[in-house]
């Protein structure tokens, strides 16, 4: 982000490395989330807890919509359209917060507690680890919004925006797998 001190070609070289580094981090985290998914199948097998289906669909849609706004924000930054950029960014943060509240208040407020057998452990383990990433994503968005308001991103130099955006989409991708694994797959034991 050190704008003035580096030449554009230096910036580009570092950008290339930053991208690769961030993607490697994603791959690394894939093993974390993959481990949780595997634990889910190991412990739950073909069963799943009885969860509020409507809630699951709503939070999933909210997160997907937030990803769409994040995409718009990045397009805005790429074309130096500040209004689009900032508006979409704030929308993303709001939707992200709505997702978080949906999980923490309504999902965690349900019947199952963390200490209720493998259902509780995995349910809270998966949603908790994911929520932690959503929360950190929101913090990142706020930081980017703060710097965006001060006009610190240009069409040539906005790695901060890009990093924040692909991190956010990544968290969405994780949920794409977690949602069916938690809500849809298997049958509720009777």
């Amino acid at each position: 982000m050190s704008v003035a001190t580096t030449t554009l070609s230096q910036y580009r070289a570092q950008l290339r490395s930053n991208r690769l580094g961030l993607w490697l981090f994603f791959i690394s985290e894939l093993f974390l989330f993959g481990g949780l998914l595997i634990s889910r199948f190991y412990l739950w097998g073909g069963t799943r807890p009885d969860l509020d289906q409507r809630l699951g669909l709503i939070v999933t849609s909210i997160l997907l919509l937030s990803s769409f706004f994040m995409y718009l924000a990045e397009v805005g930054a790429e074309h130096e359209n500040r209004r689009l950029f900032l508006f979409s960014l704030i929308m993303t943060a709001l939707l992200g917060t709505a997702f978080l509240l949906g999980v923490v208040i309504f999902e965690w407020g349900g019947e199952i507690r963390p200490w209720d057998g493998a259902f509780g452990a995995i349910l809270y383990g998966m949603t908790g680890m994911h929520a932690l990433h959503v929360a950190s994503g929101i913090v990142l968005i706020l930081i980017v919004a703060y710097n965006g308001l001060r006009g610190r991103y240009t069409a040539e130099r906005h790695w901060g925006v890009e990093a924040c955006a692909i991190y956010w989409h990544y968290v969405d991708v994780v949920w794409i797998f977690f949602y069916p694994a938690i809500y849809l797959m298997g049958t509720v034991p009777t």
Binding site: R12, L15, R16, R19, L20, W23, S67, M70, Y71, E78, A155, E156, R157, H158, W159, E162, A165, I166, H169, Y170, D172, V173, I176, F177, Y179, P180, M185
Partner: peptide, 27 residues
């Protein structure tokens, strides 16, 4: 799971621009 994979692939390709890793586009 298969549907989830397709969804993920779309996001990775179009929202996360995974191809920028080798084409160095953007910016």
């Amino acid at each position: 799971f298969f549907i989830a994979l397709i969804k993920a692939a779309l996001i990775v390709r179009y929202f996360m621009h995974v191809n920028r890793l080798w084409t160095d586009e953007g910016h």
